[in-house]
Amino acid sequence: MKIIVLVKQVPDTWGERTLDTATGRLDRSASDAVIDEIDERALEVALQYKDGQDAEVVALSMGPSTVTEVLRKSLAMGADSALHVRDDALLGSDLSRTAAVLAAAITKSGFDLVIAGNEATDGRGGVIPAMIAEHLGVPSMTYLDTVEFAPGSISGVRGDEHGTVSVHASLPAVISVTEASAEARFPNFKGIMKAKKKPLDVWTLADLGLDDSGFAPSTVVTSTTERPARTAGKKIVDEGNAGNELAEFLAAGRLI
């Protein structure tokens, strides 16, 4: 079984994240770039299967040259090989372009199962996995809390706003997993050493048979404004009466 795991490099959520107000794009220089935590969980789901079964796990990422670090970490965790789609023409890609490019890379590589995070912590669209599945013409099951592998099919529990549903699909398929799916392993020293020898290929748009225009519809950001930062208000230390004082504060603000 060949599993492709989608890993995205994102600004560290522990830092202040900023948008360039001229273009509406992420200012990637403003904060540390890390592998998205949700994608480590997606990789963990694949690696847990590989721990017990015969499987090939490929980490795939689209992004600038710094993405190499994210892919090296994926290799150190246990992925067999890595694919990096890198092309200056992809700067500032929107959802449609990102999905079209990732789908082309997945098709070129070949796959039985694609595992993605449910939503990236920066873009937070939560739609890329479904878009890729549509490009590939295969079933998708997004937002899985649990994943079960069976020969030729995959099943799981998908949580939504109202409860959960048990679902299954035949392979090949695309799935995305939630925070509840798995705790990611840490790369150990042996893994880090081995990662240095594992293949990491770089593909350009030309390698994927795409030219830099017209292969995907587009969205245009027309304005970006920053909200003034919030400031601290009143702070009191409880000396036995704080609950009553809070009730008064709420009443004065017509909040009760």
Binding site: L95, G126, E134, T142, Y143, D160, P217
Partner: peptide
């Protein structure tokens, strides 16, 4: 809706109709 189902339907529909998607 930007719900779990809404996202999956919208994402696939945008690809199928070859049109742009504005989310959340």
């Amino acid at each position: 809706a930007h719900s779990i189902d809404g996202r999956e339907i919208a994402g696939r529909l945008a690809v199928r109709l070859r049109t742009g998607l504005l989310v959340d």
